[in-house]
């Protein structure tokens, strides 16, 4: 499962624009809070940001998962000695890893604010 998660991350990392977008969101929101700490709109966006990040990551991996299933990659994976839920769980693990990085970026910058 970890092998598949590693390769999921590798494949996601190759989609430069998508990965930049995923990391830019928490970065921009946290930096905006840093620049304008009094803004109430930005405060609300900062609260919503983790949920938005999670939704975007989930969407990105869901698209990849669906494509793999449609193109037949999952057939090859299911033929290997792995558990039935392996493709699903490896996508979840990969998504969680990217979300964790997003949250590290977000919380480190917000930590500077405090």
């Amino acid at each position: 499962m970890l092998t598949l998660s590693f390769y999921n991350l590798k494949r996601m990392a190759r989609r430069r624009i998508l990965i930049l977008g995923l990391f830019a969101l928490p970065l921009l929101v946290a930096l905006s809070r840093l620049i304008m700490p009094e803004s109430k709109v930005l405060l609300i966006i900062a609260w919503v940001c983790p949920f938005l990040c999670a939704a975007l990551v989930a969407a990105a991996f869901f698209v990849q998962y669906s494509m793999d299933k449609a193109l037949g990659l999952h057939d090859g994976v299911l033929n290997a000695p792995v558990k039935e839920g392996c493709p699903t769980w490896s996508s979840i693990i990969s998504g969680a890893a990217i979300f964790a990085i997003q949250m590290i970026i977000f919380s480190v910058i917000l930590g500077v604010l405090k």
Partner: peptide, 10 residues
């Protein structure tokens, strides 16, 4: 498989 089970971006 007849339809290759390969990751296109690897």
């Amino acid at each position: 498989l007849d339809r290759p089970a390969l990751a296109p971006d690897l």
